[in-house]
């Protein structure tokens, strides 16, 4: 091995742009919080990393840059969507992923329709579109969804939510009524409010902070 003094080390040998690359001691400069550079979790099927875009010149994607959509239907949602339902910010959502989703005690629900979900979603979420919760008393598609959440239906058709998962729902942003609507429908059939959470910021807030987006593989 050649001695250090006699070796002319060079950075990224063979790459024309080598001279422009200046790497800091830690390549990561944009943390989630001062103590949390990035967030890792495993939902039992996939490993995910959530972090912020490291490009300090990045801006929100065009699809979420629009400020004004017709209201109705795209009206601003209240901070508390229903009594007893907890509204989450981004850090609380990460805590939910760590404490509930990772251990199988909770599920993060992307309540948007599939085309939006496939375009990019919050890592670790599953897609159950808001319209699957419509007309809960007559909707035959709702039963398997509730069973997936751990609810048990008795002979008279009523539901026991004792062992049901805690849920966090989101859609496109504070002006999106899809996840609030799904939450209200779940409440109407008895899903306990204390087991429901609402990430009001949705994809717009998520992207405005440069948080990681997961693009699901085509099924």
């Amino acid at each position: 091995m050649r001695s250090a003094s006699s070796i002319a080390f060079r950075m990224l040998a063979g790459l024309g742009l080598a001279a422009t690359l200046s790497l800091p001691v830690s390549a990561q400069e944009v943390f989630i919080t001062q103590e949390l550079p990035f967030f890792e979790f495993d939902n039992g099927v996939e490993f995910h990393v959530i972090e912020r875009n490291q490009d300090t010149d990045a801006t929100i994607p065009d699809a979420f840059a629009k400020t004004s959509r017709k209201c109705p239907p795209f009206c601003i949602e209240p901070m508390q969507v229903a009594e007893g339902v907890t509204t989450l910010g981004e850090l609380e959502l990460l805590k939910f992923l760590e404490e509930k989703v990772q251990d199988g005690k909770g599920a993060l629900i992307d309540a948007r329709v599939e085309t939006w979900y496939r375009g990019g979603t919050i890592p670790g979420s599953i897609n159950i579109a808001f319209n699957l919760f419509e007309n809960p008393e007559e909707n035959p598609f709702l039963s398997p969804v509730l069973q997936l959440f751990g609810a048990v239906q008795s002979g008279d058709g009523s539901w026991d939510f004792t062992n049901a998962k805690e849920l966090a729902l989101f859609c496109n942003g504070p002006w999106c009524g899809q996840s609030p609507r799904a939450i209200r429908n779940l409440l109407s059939i008895g899903y306990p409010a204390e087991k429901l959470n609402y990430y009001r910021g949705g994809m717009q807030a998520w992207l405005s902070l440069g948080m990681s987006v997961h693009v699901p593989e085509s099924s």
């Binding site: 990224l12 790459l15 422009t20 690359l21 200046s22 390549a27 490291q54 490009d55």
Partner: peptide, 10 residues
């Protein structure tokens, strides 16, 4: 180049 080089390193 810088962006992906940094990402590769971290």
């Amino acid at each position: 180049f810088n962006k992906h080089g940094n990402a590769m390193k971290s």
